[in-house]
Simulated assay, not measured.
Amino acid sequence: MNHLIVYAHPHEGSFNHAILDTAAAALKDKGHEVHVRDLYKLGFNPVLSPADTAAMREGNTPADIAAEQEYLRNADVITFVYPIWWTGLPAILKGYVDRTFSYGFAYQYNAEGGIDKLFTGKKAVIVNTHGTPGKVYEAIGMHNSLKQTSGGGIFEFCGVEVLEHFLFGGVGSGAGDEERSRMLAQVKEKFSSL
């Protein structure tokens, strides 16, 4: 199975990087083909420019977008690994979605006024960390909101079935080594079972 991991955290020693390493290793151990797109290492430009949209309307997708779309096109499973910042995606990942999940590639409107979901058949896993304790986000409904915006508003909108959405809270503000080990064990178990 072809598995794409889109990773968005600027620090090599972060807990998100440990999640990335755990997921990739579990997939490789099961014989999956794994492609990691580390957006910060790539220096991915997150700004959808007027030149980008004009070029895509003319059928001339800019090279950096086309390269990422090739990874998306070939993926059976797409995983996003990123921290929650200000209750949302880091700007670099939001820009990745803006630029690569484009009209005519990930979705389009049809003659009946409905949406053609062009990624139908693909699967997804989302792994998030956040500093706010999980109980707080759960109590105020933030976990459901995050699942709705990322899972529903991005992936399901394009036809991708979300298999799992991990929301690991208290990272950096209270999760000790034992708790982090438990989180990584959940990641390993999920990716080993795909």
Rank of each mutant, 00 (worst) to 15 (best):
V97L: 11
T22A: 15
S102T: 14
P83K: 06
D38S: 07
E70K: 07
A25Q: 14
F44S: 02
K41T: 11
G95S: 07
A63Y: 06
A175M: 10
H165P: 15
L89M: 14
A106M: 10
A124P: 00
G95T: 07
L48S: 03
S173V: 04
E156T: 11
T22W: 08
H3Y: 13
I5F: 08
E161H: 10
G59D: 12
I65L: 01
T149F: 10
Y96S: 03
T100K: 08
R180C: 09
A66V: 03
L20T: 03
E68I: 06
N45F: 11
V47C: 10
A111S: 14
A24R: 07
K188S: 13
I92P: 13
N45K: 13
T100S: 10
G95N: 08
G104T: 13
A25G: 05
F119Q: 10
H35D: 12
Y71D: 09
Y7A: 03
P83N: 10
G59R: 12
M183L: 04
L118W: 01
Y137V: 12
L194H: 06
R37C: 01
H35I: 13
L118Y: 09
R180I: 09
V47Q: 05
Q186I: 11
F157N: 06
F157D: 05
A55L: 02
S181C: 06
V187W: 06
Y103D: 07
F15A: 10
V34A: 04
V77K: 01
D98V: 12
L184H: 10
R182Q: 10
A55E: 12
E178G: 14
A91C: 09
K28N: 10
L93N: 00
T129K: 02
S145Q: 06
I78E: 01
N110W: 01
G31T: 03
L89N: 01
A91H: 11
E58I: 13
H143C: 12
M1I: 08
G131K: 03
H9D: 14
K41C: 02
V6R: 01
G170L: 05
A23T: 12
G170H: 06
T79Q: 08
T100H: 13
G153Q: 14
G104K: 15
